[in-house]
Amino acid sequence: MLRFLLFRLALLIPTFVGVSIVAFAFIRLLPGDPIMMLAGERGISAERYAELQAAYGFDRPIIVQYLDYLWGLLHGDLGTSVVTRRPVLDEFFTLFPATLELSLCAITLAVFLGVPLGVIAAVKRGSWVDQSIMGTALVGYSMPIFWWGLLLIILFSGILGWTPVSGRISLLYFFPPVTGFMLIDSLLSGQDGAFRSALSHLVLPSIVLATIPLAVIARQTRSAMLEVLGEDYVRTARSKGLPPARVIGLHALRNALIPVITTIGLQIGVLMAGAILTETIFSWPGIGKWMVDSVFKRDYAVVQGGLLLIAGIIMLVNLIVDVLYGLVNPRIRH
């Protein structure tokens, strides 16, 4: 187990180097640079432009800039935002709880709805129940996130007026962040209606972000269950006179979960990609929106740092999933 963990951790190093190169190169391939973007439509004089280029070090050869960046990384310095002049890491940790809260809600929704729906579809294979669950899942999977988000906003916020359109909480409430999770902080603040407001802001973005993972998990659970339900040990469980809930919910599901857990792990990457769109649609102040904004502003340090941190999170989650996989499947315990 220790060897396995060390090996996996060692693998992170080349991955990080790769991500840093890609992040560094790609943002520089876009036309324009941070100084142009800051100057805006009024433009900037050639002398002033050269002065600022030199001040930020953008005039040096690209390889020197990269090595300098790498040197900073090794010292835990992700650079400073050209726009806000705050360290990238500080900004990240201010905004990350918002994304984490949204992602946790979305993945919880996706797992706790997707797995049972997949099980029901498998048990009722071929029936109208199965077909409607799988049909809906296919539609959900195929739906572009931004469009689906807008449809929900039009229906629930626009026509029905049930939920707010954007943000994390009504502007009427103000309290200092304690955990960074709005649901918890609003409860801690003790203000009347704060929790309700935070929750109503969270509902639509969570549904939008959960849709694709939910569809994938439901489909994967169904096919894994169908395979497992035909296994000999399921027949054995039934021959022992166990109630169907136990045969399906314990003996079959436990085995079906093995591939499903891998799928859930892979969905974390999808979730991060989805967060960028979802946060932009709902003006959710998380790292997705932060990244999109900084791409538009060519805020090099933020895009590079943000990509590295997101990649780090995805790799960490996948590592956790691999460890969990061993716990669930006794045959491959390391």
Binding site: D232, Y233, T236, K240, G241, R254, N255
Partner: peptide, 22 residues
């Protein structure tokens, strides 16, 4: 289910596959 597994029980052809691996 009250009879099966208690008064009548059954064993199968593939013993390894008949036991739950988990």
């Amino acid at each position: 289910r009250r009879i099966v597994g208690k008064d009548i029980s059954m064993i199968f052809q593939e013993p390894v596959a008949s036991l739950n691996p988990c």
